[in-house]
């Protein structure tokens, strides 16, 4: 009989580059807990990322993984899922990677609805490049690059995911790892594209996010499958509530059928 897989079985010997107190540690442990809970074998799982602090995560989990280029995690993940549909494909990354340079892929991955779970560790800042505003940063947040703040209204990840056609829209918090693990579990179980925004504090460039621990509240509603209701709730929300906001079964991208013809036959088509 096979032994039960434990969270530590997914651990690699590579030391994370993350700062002490970084929220990304919580996502890493929530993820390994969930994989162990689901008893997914290492080789069944592929974790795909782009560039940024949180995008370093695949190297810290002993499964298949790909640490690609900035912004393209979802494209890599989609290609892998299409070529090898039996893999459990999880894309991970940060807010800059997913919503700025990768924003186009985010929308189209939601539309395409392949069975991929996408976890964005959102700290409202570019950490790896040492503190510039990201798409989710408040307009008045001052940095060296934006001495007067960006002046730009923050990107709304949940609203965009919903309107782009995602069938699973959730928000978690690094300060609540077991709640986060539950959301990841639901996301992996969901058939189709699952989007989980994780509030993941950056103690180095956004120390004020330590207050999230007191500010974050549970999502005050039950999960709905009504996109209109979900949209109005998301737009009324201040961004610091967590839960499974919207879930709906939508047609999922399906892999192609087995071969039904031979190349020799296809070549007959060129005969005069």
């Amino acid at each position: 009989m096979n032994e039960m897989i434990k969270p530590k079985d997914y651990k690699t010997d590579i030391k994370p580059i993350w700062c002490p107190g970084c929220g990304d540690f919580a996502t890493l442990s929530a993820l390994t807990k969930t994989l162990a809970f689901m008893q997914l074998k290492k080789e069944q799982v592929s974790i795909i990322s782009g560039i940024g602090c949180s995008s370093r995560l695949p190297a810290y989990i002993d499964s298949y993984g790909f640490h690609g280029v900035h912004g393209r995690a979802l494209a890599l993940a989609s290609g892998l899922k299409a070529a090898r549909p039996t893999q459990t494909v999880i894309a991970v990354g940060g807010d800059g990677d997913g919503f700025s340079i990768g924003g186009n892929h985010f929308m189209h991955a939601c539309r395409r609805n392949m069975d991929i779970t996408y976890i964005v560790m959102d700290n409202h800042v570019y950490g790896m490049t040492k503190g510039q505003p990201s798409p989710t940063t408040e307009p008045d947040w001052v940095s060296k690059l934006t001495p007067h703040g960006s002046g730009i209204r923050p990107f709304q990840p949940l609203a965009i995911a919903l309107s782009s056609g995602a069938g699973f829209v959730a928000r978690g918090f690094a300060g609540d790892p077991s709640g986060l693990a539950k959301l990841i579990f639901e996301g992996l179980r969901h058939q189709g594209f699952s989007f989980i925004q994780v509030l993941s504090p950056c103690p180095t460039f956004r120390p004020e996010q330590k207050l999230w621990k007191q500010q974050v509240q549970p999502w005050p509603f039950d999960t709905t499958d009504d996109p209109v209701l979900a949209a109005s709730r998301i737009h009324a929300d201040e961004g610091l509530t967590t839960g499974l906001i919207y879930q709906r079964e939508l047609p999922v991208w399906q892999p192609g059928a087995e071969a039904s013809d031979t190349l020799e036959n296809i070549e007959q088509g060129f005969l005069v």
Binding site: G71, A75, L76, S78, G79, L80, A83
Partner: peptide, 19 residues
């Protein structure tokens, strides 16, 4: 897969080949 742009198409085939 019809990609959303060429940035996606090249990364999609890298993912497919990785697979």
């Amino acid at each position: 897969l019809q990609a959303e742009d060429e940035l996606a198409s090249i990364n999609m085939i890298i993912g497919g080949s990785f697979g």
